[in-house]
Design a protein around this nucleic acid. Structure first.
Lengths: 399, 399
DNA sequence: CATGATACGTTGCCACTCTCAACAAATCAG
DNA sequence: CTGATTTGTTGAGAGTGGCAACGTATCATG
């Protein structure tokens, strides 16, 4: 338990303001005054400091039709960005994401086979090297965030086990840091998805959100509890895919029987539809369009298992929102009422009464935004821990 | 998102120090200096203020065999107490709990039948009235905490649904406040048990703890995630008892089939043993002593279902510790290795690797301590929001 | 038993941050 | 144009923790 001093007050207040304009978008100074409860003059000083740090910019007041002196608008600087990296089975995706949440660039680098750690790092580093000119002239990079489809140890970003990539105890962050020179942080992809949906998607402003994602290789999840992302002791929390939902002996990727991931699979939906491959949107469209009894039956079977897992999660966590991503969104879209009714039959009334179930909103940018948020976090926690880039001061340095 | 000012700094620092001596016991000033990172002179001022507030007392330094000037010991005042109330099916228990965690008094008032809200409030108020002389002379009461076996709405303490007591939407806190004059807060009993075990029992100092309690009337639970008690949106989180663990159609108290609470019951253990009733300790002793195959089989069956629920919780929350209370502790004690092995077979290796499963430590004082903690929380959050009792200043008031 | 080393409490001064009040500026209503 | 309203700006003020110097209590050493 740490005590605090006036330095902490300043840091915290800078942090609060930067977070507000980062997450809720541009805001007038007077709005910031109301939201933070701080004095006008304090807000002026804080915004001034953030401006000097190059993190926010003030622009002319919007034309409001209200009396009183107009208040200037504070917005995040467009130059501040983070790099997002997402290694997958068949590609490594790299993105440039602005502090304002905009995805400036997204480059998907396909690989013939699942990349090794070294390959993934090399690809990411090469793509980033290619963008370096652009990055150094037009942007200010605060760091790199990596969304990993696997278990990532919280305190050092070691990839303990990424089954679908075949990685075990991979020192990903260290390697990427050395290869690029940028500070790197890594976390589980679904956890980052939860965070992204919570701040910028379907769960905006909510404090208790569960996110479940259905991917080609399995089911992952993340939670926001009491406003904070849940990591657990070591950072492995959120593995909803391995929850027991049936008595069958079908096993999942971890060899556990009767789990959500064993019963609810993308592959079986595609098979029922007679498709070889399809992205999440195509799969959803195909399911909605199909009237085959076999497809219906398969959807119904999977939806039943999903409902067990959701009801369990609702009972245990009493969330405000459950967000479904990937092909799980399709299982929801096909018959939302039926899914809801099934969850209802297995959840406690009190908890079920306050929960909503909805599809993810951020689509293909989800993991870019989530991973970037990881990199932004250090900046948001301590805005003046990142001095403005050296080059602006270079001329002052004695030769 | 609130900004902070210097008042908040002081409040926070007072709060941090009072929490430290409340939870970890008496500490020397120099230890507080190390733990908080604050300056010696600041600690002196803060401890002085807490002393003036009558919340802590300083005593002569302990005899240490080390060089240097000895540092005085700061301990919580023995006079500061909270009242704990726990209505149950067959009794209402009232306790006096010190800020130092000691249970000064515990009075169990048995009832012939399950008490109504009014009866419970009347009993509690009467017992408290009986103690009032003692309370007002020897103690300083900060408030009342109530541990309710049911769902309690977080923001106002309304008892939404306490199935075993038959209470629905009971304004318990309001009634007890009016009847006693003390400020009252209420929460779910298992959640408070989790908190108590976390601060004063098996989970001391841990940030990620799950607590599951087996009672006569069902199974409840609570969680500490990232150091904070989990309530969910409305305060209903922690209902592990209604998690699906089997495909059977045995239903629980909420009418849901195949749940932990439906499969794992105290009643069936007692029946297998041929006992009519037994408290948690007696049940455990009887189970350990029995070599009947029928008993073994029933224990084995229940342990298997418990393992499913525990593995699910471990996968989702990646806790550091799972604490089992009530008769669930007995299911653990009978064969800890087997329970562990079964959980292991259904949990992810990474998460299982960092978890320990153990029995609750606090025994019959658990809910007293948990409920009192609820009342202490306001004091701990804002130590100088509770002025010293009026009587000491009465002579200064002009007539 | 005297001396020095060590650790810690105490004191007074300083730097920092937020608040507040007074004033200035920018808008709307009439 | 005038008044009301809202907000930025400025300078003074209060409260906080940090710090350095000094005082004090213990142990170790001879």
């Amino acid at each position: 338990m740490q005590g605090s001093s006036h330095d902490d007050v300043r840091r915290r207040n800078l942090s609060v303001i930067l977070r507000l304009v980062h997450r809720d978008g541009a805001a007038s100074r007077s709005r910031l005054t109301r939201l933070t409860g701080l004095n006008r003059s304090t807000i002026a000083a804080l915004v001034g400091e953030l401006t000097d740090l190059g993190l926010v910019e003030e622009r002319e007041p919007d034309a409001t039709n209200r009396v009183g002196r107009p208040s200037p608008i504070v917005a995040v600087s467009g130059r501040v960005v983070a790099l997002a990296v997402n290694p997958e089975i068949d590609a490594v995706t790299i993105g440039i994401v602005g502090l304002d949440g905009s995805v400036h660039r997204r480059i998907r680098y396909p690989t013939e086979r699942s990349p090794s750690v070294t390959e993934a790092v090399n690809i990411a580093a090469a793509v980033i090297e290619g963008m370096r000119g652009e990055l150094e002239s037009a942007f200010r990079v605060v760091g790199i965030g990596v969304a990993v489809p696997g278990l990532v140890r919280a305190h050092d970003g070691l990839v303990r086990h990424a089954p679908h990539l075949g990685w075990v105890d991979a020192p990903l962050t260290e390697m990427l840091e050395r290869a690029t020179g940028y500070p790197v942080r890594a976390a589980n992809d679904a956890g980052l998805g939860a965070m992204a949906e919570r701040y910028f998607g379907a769960g905006r402003g909510m404090a208790d959100v569960i996110y479940l994602n259905g991917g080609a290789s399995g089911i992952g999840g993340g939670m926001i509890v009491g406003g904070n992302a849940v990591g657990g002791v070591a950072g492995y929390a959120g593995e909803f895919g391995h929850t027991r939902v049936s008595a069958s002996d079908r096993t999942d990727s971890a060899g556990i029987a009767g789990t959500l991931e064993a019963e609810v699979t993308r592959r079986e939906l595609l098979d029922a539809l007679g498709l070889v491959s399809a992205d999440a949107d195509e799969l959803e469209q195909a399911l909605l369009a199909s009237d085959s009894p076999a497809v219906r039956a398969e959807v119904d079977r999977q939806q039943g298992h999903l409902a067990v897992a959701l009801a369990g999660a609702v009972n245990i966590l009493n969330p405000q929102l459950v967000v479904l991503g990937g092909f799980l969104a399709a299982l929801h879209a096909v018959d939302p009422e039926r899914l809801l009714a099934r969850v209802s039959s297995m959840a406690l009334g009190a908890s079920f009464g306050s929960v909503r179930i909805s599809a993810a909103e951020l689509g293909s940018n989800l993991l870019m935004i989530g991973a970037a948020e990881l990199a932004f976090e250090r900046l948001l926690d301590n805005p003046n821990g990142f001095p403005a880039p050296e080059r602006e001061y270079r001329e002052w340095v004695s030769p």
